[in-house]
Computed example of a mutant assay.
Amino acid sequence: MYGNSRQQVIPPTRSRVKAGFVVYSPESDTRELIILDEGELIAVDKSGGNRDIKFKMHPGDIVGVAALFEREPLRYTIEASEDSVITVLSEECLESELKNIPVWLLAILKNLSVRTREFKHDSKRTPVENTLKSLAEYCAHLDSNIKYPLEEFIREFNWLTRIPAATVKGDIKALLRRSFIGLAKDGEDLYVQVHNATLMQIYSDYLQAQDDGALWAPLRLNLAQKRILVHLTTLDEHVQMEAPEWIAYLNRKGLAIDVSQWITLEDLGCFATGEENKYHIDQAKVEYYLTAIRYDSNLRGAV
């Protein structure tokens, strides 16, 4: 007696549905792959009592791949927006097909499934740990006192970093509380404005130091050193002197400084090496530290 060695295969279900018919509901425990052959389907988010159409399906579109292969629940209700023809592949149907395919093909499918899951996980994962620092650094590259449409600002930053929009909005509020940025309204539109792009970079550096568990450089300055920095802003940055000459000059100006304090200022980059072992003032670095000192309360969130 000869019989069919293949096990019974459960075929997909092809059916016609009327407009308004619920093809799939998240409340059901079934896992299905739905193929639209004719017509149009819509995916509806009904959470929170709302009815938000997330996307539309056209002939040839498929939904439920992750639900069937990855056992990941389909979050949306699938409805027919017009009379349609659909093909439904159930879990039982898939399992009956898998029992009859070659082992090598099954291994390929499993490998593709794993790769798909990893790709989806990576695509959803935020690539940065400190989202506030990332936003501050982004703002540091914007022009100061220029109005940027808020929605476009959030959308572009989200696209660049994959940080969720809700998180971005929370970080924007943190910058607003510190008075680093401002919001302006023009008609119905909101705009964001960076007050001082340099300050944004300073804040980013401050947060990085916190993440590293290190003492942030401006916090290493004592009162005498801060007074020296203020005086340096009145000098020509092209003036060059050797270290002993700078120490002698500052002491003559009533700014007490010894070799140890000089080394600290040099180490912080306030003095740059010039010609023949001479040093000149790095005004950009001096201004960086003075700005950090001036906005100390804002940086710490104490405003």
Results as ranks from 00 to 15, higher is better:
118 E>W: 06
75 R>C: 01
137 E>C: 05
169 K>N: 08
26 P>R: 10
145 N>F: 12
295 Y>N: 07
206 Y>E: 01
37 D>C: 11
3 G>Q: 14
153 F>Q: 03
69 F>V: 00
74 L>G: 02
31 R>Y: 07
302 A>H: 10
59 P>Q: 08
133 K>I: 06
299 L>M: 15
296 D>T: 09
17 V>G: 01
150 L>Y: 12
21 F>R: 12
102 P>D: 15
261 Q>Y: 05
100 N>F: 12
294 R>E: 13
26 P>D: 11
31 R>V: 05
33 L>Q: 08
115 R>F: 12
85 V>Y: 02
264 T>G: 03
8 Q>I: 14
259 V>M: 13
240 Q>Y: 04
297 S>K: 12
8 Q>N: 10
167 T>I: 10
146 I>C: 02
99 K>A: 13
102 P>E: 11
145 N>A: 13
236 D>H: 07
51 R>F: 11
52 D>I: 13
297 S>Q: 13
87 T>H: 04
135 L>C: 09
191 Y>S: 07
236 D>G: 10
218 P>T: 05
157 F>I: 02
288 Y>E: 07
231 H>Q: 11
188 E>S: 13
274 G>C: 05
260 S>I: 10
155 R>E: 15
41 L>D: 01
39 G>V: 04
281 I>Y: 04
66 A>P: 03
26 P>K: 07
183 L>H: 06
106 L>C: 08
227 R>V: 06
275 E>P: 02
68 L>S: 00
198 T>W: 08
181 I>P: 06
156 E>F: 07
282 D>G: 03
68 L>E: 06
215 L>C: 05
274 G>M: 02
18 K>D: 09
99 K>Q: 15
259 V>H: 13
153 F>D: 03
185 K>Q: 13
210 Q>Y: 02
118 E>R: 14
82 E>N: 06
103 V>M: 08
60 G>M: 12
55 F>Y: 15
281 I>T: 02
